[in-house]
Design a protein around this nucleic acid. Structure first.
Lengths: 331, 331
DNA sequence: TTGAAAGCGTTACCAA
DNA sequence: TTGGTAACGCTTTCAA
């Protein structure tokens, strides 16, 4: 059972300072005009009693809770952890706290979490890579005074959206490969249910007038799946001289497959990945890839939300481009 | 400016259902006895109006806020991200939310964050690797109905503690090396200000009756610092046949140095790390190291806190041992 | 089994 | 420049 020590209240301060609670309230909120003398006296008592306003009571009066909700599919995924770090930084600058909710890719849980956040009167939510159906989204999002969706479009009213330019990023990779003289490019594409996998594949197709024989799909992109996909692809198309991979892990596997196949990287074939995970610069040859500064991305997302909360006209839709990181695997 | 849509209140439900607010309250809390007929009617109205209790108002009445605070030095660090994932899982099972606070190793910010959390009436806090001074800790922690410290001891009353058995883990590594016939062991030790570095060093010393000539210090443990430290150590002690490294990154660098030095791993010299980062099983030879399941650790931490919150007698001090992961670098 | 009234700590509104 | 009163939405307490 919880036992909370009695807190000093505004009434305590008022009594000791010989003023009304209202006056104390005005002092701590810097509102209205207060006689400097009175203010001094109240401040002194606040200090002596170590008074701090009760945020719960404040929230109840209706204005703000100074809390936002952040919903992610998996906080243990460094991608979201870094975004969350950026969000938290900006939130704190705005004197806000973050309620972090991990949904583990479960849409049911996502729904419950949203209702809970609304019941706790958060001033806004940030939803990263939601798994909710398009139809459910508007009704849920519209419960909140402000909301922002990362990597998902929606018809919800007043929802802002921040998207990663996955397709454009892949196009740049392809252009880089072609500028390096590569003529026959293949792709190892990611899972069919993933939004970003679809976008990356679209980018590849549009940049290459994609021949489907040059594309190999893997459901989960990992080193060994990348390895096998590259083997299949090379068996089918021995003259490939460039390989675009859904992500860095797959690219690492693909490079191993190339070498097993007797092809040198980048001599005979160039390999590129996507995400710039730490491993990308630790292996040999170092991987050419796409990067987005995830902490900065989180900060940008949060700033967008707070613009909304603060009543400024926020950017409705923001698209963030990757940065091309050129290393040894495709110089 | 925030505009919050008017919520359905308990009074609305009461009016439509033709009962008092109290009856509605009893229904949603399953408290006291209610005539089944009345309960049915109230439930129906709740459903129709889509009523959900306002948690802020609930918290104000004094019992619980159903929110805990989690304070970490850096959520972008996968170590803490995974622990946080574990904590969040258990919190949600208890119908709790987590306010996540990132302190970026700044003790001042940590203090502010704690005051804020107290003002928001959290029912408990979990503080991971605090940078606060021993003297500040008790006063701050005692503001909360329940608190738990990870990897830090304290004299604060009613504070529970979960510690990682860093020293014991290193002892096990040393024993493993000695069982494998290694006779002359060196160590690459970590930063002087780090709690865990100190503990790991202590473990090494106690297990080897440590000769300081066999120990090399690095301020930040990374691949290149590990490389250089190993070089220095090998130059000084060419007959080393075992090397214990503060963490996996340093171990990776150390292995490279060994090979550069013409020593094969594990043939001529065994190398072990600590932490089991993803890279550890990706490089060759695969690294023998220490692991602790960080998600499970987070769950354990949270369960300890909730035991306290729920008034059970929680374990005052819990020590978590690493698991020895034997791979190729020290079979 | 149900209800009325008081209170949680704060702020909005109106009055002095 | 200050204070009284009434909310905010709920639960506790006491009474019926």
């Amino acid at each position: 059972m919880i036992r909370r020590r009695r807190r000093v209240t505004i009434a305590d301060v008022a009594e000791v300072a010989n003023v009304s609670a209202m006056t104390v309230s005005r002092v701590i909120n810097n509102k209205d005009a207060i006689k400097p003398e009175t203010r001094q006296r109240v401040m002194k008592v606040i200090d002596e009693l170590d008074y701090a306003p009760n945020h719960i009571a404040r929230s109840l009066t209706g204005s703000r809770s100074y809390t936002i909700g952040v919903i992610v599919v998996d906080i243990a995924n460094p991608f979201f952890a870094e975004i969350t770090a950026g969000i938290e930084t900006v939130a704190w600058q705005h004197h806000y706290n973050v309620i972090l909710c991990n949904t583990q890719e479960d849409p049911r849980r996502e729904r419950q979490v949203m209702r809970m956040l609304e019941a706790k009167q958060v001033d806004g939510v940030i939803v990263c890579s939601t798994r909710l159906a398009d139809d459910d989204l508007p009704r849920l999002l519209e419960m909140f005074p402000a909301c922002l969706l990362f990597n998902r479009e929606t018809t919800a009213k007043d929802a802002n959206v921040v998207m990663l330019a996955d397709a454009a990023g892949i196009v740049r990779l392809v252009e880089h490969l072609e500028a390096g003289g590569r003529r026959r490019l293949g792709m190892i594409a990611g899972g069919s249910r993933s939004h970003s996998a679809q976008a990356r594949l679209d980018g590849f197709r549009s940049a290459t007038n994609g021949d489907d024989a040059l594309i190999e799909h893997i459901e989960t992109a990992h080193i060994h799946t990348g390895f096998r996909a590259a083997q299949t692809l090379l068996a089918r198309q021995p003259d490939l001289d460039g390989l675009v991979c859904h992500n860095d892990l797959a690219a690492v596997g693909a490079m191993q497959a190339c070498m097993t196949h007797g092809k040198s990287v980048p001599g005979d074939i160039a390999v590129v990945g996507c995400d710039d995970i730490p491993l990308a610069s630790l292996i040999s040859p170092k991987l050419t890839t796409l990067r987005v500064d995830r902490r900065v991305l989180g900060e940008l997302i949060a700033r967008n939300l707070f613009a909304h909360i603060d009543g400024e006209q926020p950017t409705r839709r923001q698209v963030i481009r990757h940065q091309l990181v050129i290393r040894d695997s495709a110089p």
